[in-house]
Write a protein that binds this DNA or RNA. Sequence first.
DNA 1: TGACCAATTGGAACCGGTTCCATCTTAGCT
DNA 2: AGCTAAGATGGAACCGGTTCCAATTGGTCA
Lengths: 335, 335
Amino acid sequence: MATATIRDVAQKAGVGVGTVSRVLNDNVSVSQETRRKVLAAISELDFSPNLAARRLSSGKTMVIGALVPYFTNPSVVRRLQGIVSVVTNSVYDLILFDVELVERRDEYLLNVLRRQMVDGLLIISLTPTDTDVQHIQQAELPTVLVDANHPALSRVVVDNVFGGYQATKHLLDLGHRHIAYISDYLDDPFNSPVRDRFKGYRQALAETGLEFIPEYHQQGPHGRYEARAMTTNLLNQPTPPTAIFAYSDTQAIGVIEAALDLGIKIPEDLSVIGFDNIEAAEYLHITTIRQALYESGVSGCELLLQVMANPMPEPQEILLPIELVQRNTTAPPIH
Amino acid sequence: MATATIRDVAQKAGVGVGTVSRVLNDNVSVSQETRRKVLAAISELDFSPNLAARRLSSGKTMVIGALVPYFTNPSVVRRLQGIVSVVTNSVYDLILFDVELVERRDEYLLNVLRRQMVDGLLIISLTPTDTDVQHIQQAELPTVLVDANHPALSRVVVDNVFGGYQATKHLLDLGHRHIAYISDYLDDPFNSPVRDRFKGYRQALAETGLEFIPEYHQQGPHGRYEARAMTTNLLNQPTPPTAIFAYSDTQAIGVIEAALDLGIKIPEDLSVIGFDNIEAAEYLHITTIRQALYESGVSGCELLLQVMANPMPEPQEILLPIELVQRNTTAPPIH
DNA sequence: TGACCAATTGGAACCGGTTCCATCTTAGCT
DNA sequence: AGCTAAGATGGAACCGGTTCCAATTGGTCA
């Protein structure tokens, strides 16, 4: 069956197309009787308005976009789950843009902006440049950052400096004095948390009067295997660290595996603390800094819906709490 | 800036709108010189074609839909990651429909079909009813099932009966004779794997001359906590099982936690085998049946793209292999 | 040289909604 | 009774692309 159009409905109901449109969009003035007739015609023809046409004429897409980096990253997935839970209960649909290659990030953003693909945009764990922000503002697209920061955009963030500080402080409090940090590349322009946590790490060290030892900071691509390699580097040094702060739980798992390989006991010989509190951290009893991943998605999406409904003059910031979760991978050093 | 339209481009380039459209869609006959002029005008005006308009006039949405149940389920996430990896490298965008409530499943499907929201549809882990299939065929929407089965639709599947058989056989081969199965509700019409694996379980038992003991089958909502409760039920029986086959790794984790609570040692006192081989199974060294989750998403999406490009008269079936992964949660029974 | 054909191009019609404006009722008020 | 205002309705114009048809141009061949 060729799908019915609004004109078919109008004809069948004996009214004009404008009236049918009014019935479809409720709220406007249509008499009871007319509405009844139109609804009857609609159900008789099994009519459902064509989305593309509706979008073109109304200028609204009824779609929210989510720009995510590395959809394979468990913390990103968790945030997305929060987003999905909110979108599912709204009138919007969700379109997913996965940025696997940082070089293609721009392309995506511009594409989304210029083609009016979405009514609102969530950017996850990708710090936008000033140029990006300019583009966004020019396009007047409601946008919310989740786990990324920019003064000109609304955002849901966590105090990563404090998180890095807290993780390091925990190790210091246990008595460790040789504390390493393994992380993603510090100079990744789109990853600001990696720098913030590093800052917190150094603050805690400085506060205790410890010097920062460059050899104790290893950086590389994100991932379990990469973390494993970095850990081996660390543990083969003349004075190996007695504790390792990993930028993410995923990396902490790599650290643990490397230690296992080398016959180094955790937490007796080596303390490990991660970050994020992904599910696997719970299974493996990894001490970590919990951040509200799922909730960040929920809040981010709720904030976006608000901004879309009535644009706010000032960008909003929602700060989510973090918390040390002590489990079984940290303990005082032996000597 | 009000975004430029194709007519603005036409005017600036001194050509007709048809010509601009031809340039945009390549392949048709446009002279070198004209093409150059048009492209110049396009870049000068920073023009990008409006998607809604393109969709309306061409009838193509350039969007693929993915209908998934419980986006929080790790195996579903893994499949989706496979899908995303393929979609990202295609010209299509991905729209995600998360069905949290089974009752709303129909609503989603009909909505997607009738409003021509997508050019192709992937249905993950949701077995469609005959009525659903009728609707899909009526709408002539290219559709591929992933981890779900229906003879009239193309699909990517795994032999779940064999999987259940293999898991149970592994336990039998180790010498177990009291083997329980914990699973989702068997009568969930949209979850056929749960029944298939159960069938395999019973086949293996029967083949060994063992009777099926109803008390050894526990069913309930999917989840770690629910699995924990079911395990406690099992282990408190007069003759508790010496081995448990869990429908999913997530449930196997619940089983392990319950055993830990009760001071029951794994694998010495209790063997546990899961299904799926999600990442956590690797971390926790759970013996399981590996199915190619990520690959199922990849193949499913590739198959869909094929079907969309040139519709096939016959529905295709791709059967992915499964494999026993022996780790540390299964061993021979003590007595 | 004239007929014919292919390549190129312009632009109207169309996709199926929304929206605005003009028109027509009808009730309310003096 | 006459006038006004509010409510209901029809339908043209519009959103911004694609596509088809007709027209123009230039080249080829007999």
